Amino acid sequence: MAKTHDILCIGSVLWDVIGRSPNHMWLGVDVPGRIERLPGGVAMNIAMTLARFGMRPALLSAVGRDAEGEDLVRACEAFGLETAYLYRSDDFPTDRYVAVEGANGLIAAIADAHSLEQAGAKILSPLEDGRLGSAQTPYRGLVALDGNLTLEILEEIAVSPLLSKADLRVAPASPGKAERLRPFLTHSRAVLYVNREEAGLLCQKDFATACAAAEGLLARGAARTLVTDGANPVAEGHNGGIIELPPPQVTVTRLTGAGDTFMAAHIAEEARGERGLVALEAALKAAADYVSRETAR
């Protein structure tokens, strides 16, 4: 059977509902702006960016059989994503994420990933029933994994034979879920993509720069990590040392999905054989292009 994908994206696939205003905002303010509903979730954002870079992502996630779920699956397929391995259930509604952004940044966000969390290990079934692999023939290849899964499932994945041969690229869903990635902090096959705040939560220490955060993660046992810090220099660390690079200076019009875009672009560059500063520069440019666009896609 012909292979339908070249990377697995495991985690949240949901609808983003994002309200954006060009004005500064504070508690209780009522301002004009725009509201969009678009496909989102960390795994979905990564997959869409990978597809734009010419890769063929397959999704492992939970999507309801409700009207929103049917719309979402059609949207995934329109982006060229493989949806055959999604866990579909009548028991769970399709997950959603709601955020409000102003000129002064992200004001507030709520991630409703309860269906993904309740589905749990069921989303991994294709990795053990022969469709994508089994315990005896583990999946080999690139995997992008996000922290919207429960800590229990992430702990299971970290030691499971199902992904013991995979090239794992791991990211938290948000700073609030960063500590769920602890099982991968000393994982020999995991690359951690985090921001400076998330690195601090993983190390239980405040870092002044992305470089310091990368050093802290390596000291705690990380095999390799990439740490972003907004408009400040990004750092990539591994046992060969640390490299830094400043991002392009752009006018920021959107924030949600920027980290996912950076991660996906970096993975795509490395899949093409690029490494080091070349891959890092391409990923930063992709993220800068994303945050400076007026429209989402």
Rank of each mutant, 00 (worst) to 15 (best):
Thr209His: 12
Cys76Gln: 08
Gly176Thr: 09
Thr94Ser: 02
Phe92Tyr: 12
Cys76His: 05
Ala190Ser: 07
Gly200Ser: 00
Glu156Cys: 06
Glu82Met: 05
Leu154Asp: 10
Ala166Asp: 10
Leu202Pro: 05
Pro172Glu: 14
Tyr193Val: 08
Ala190Thr: 06
Glu82Trp: 01
Ala171Pro: 06
Pro138Thr: 05
Lys177Trp: 12
Phe79Asn: 14
Glu128Gly: 06
Asn148Arg: 13
Asp91His: 14
Ser134Tyr: 08
Arg131Phe: 00
Asp146Gly: 04
Ala178Gly: 14
Gly102His: 09
His187Ser: 08
Ser89Arg: 08
Pro126Tyr: 00
Ala171Gln: 14
Thr83Pro: 00
Thr209Tyr: 12
Ala111Ser: 14
Asn195Arg: 06
Gly200Asn: 02
Ser188Ile: 07
Phe79Gly: 09
Ala78Gly: 12
Ser89Met: 03
Lys205Ser: 12
Gly120Trp: 04
Glu77Gln: 15
Gln204Trp: 04
Ala78Asp: 13
Arg131Tyr: 00
Ala178Arg: 15
Val191Pro: 02
Ile153Trp: 11
Leu106Thr: 13
Leu145Gly: 05
Asn195Leu: 01
Tyr97Thr: 11
Thr209Asp: 10
Pro183His: 07
Glu117His: 04
Ser89Cys: 04
Phe184Asn: 10
Phe184Glu: 11
Ala78Tyr: 07
Asp146Cys: 05
Glu128Pro: 00
Gly102Cys: 10
His187Asp: 08
Ala173Thr: 15
Ala173Tyr: 14
Thr150Ile: 06
Leu81Gly: 02
Leu192Trp: 13
Asn195Gln: 08
Ala158Ile: 06
Gln204Lys: 13
Val170Tyr: 12
Gly105Arg: 13
Arg196Glu: 06
Leu181Cys: 11
Ala190Leu: 03
Leu201Tyr: 11
Ala111Gly: 14
Pro126Trp: 00
Asp91Asn: 13
Arg180Cys: 08
Ser164Ile: 06
Pro161Ala: 10
Glu156Leu: 09
Asp206Glu: 08
Pro138Lys: 09
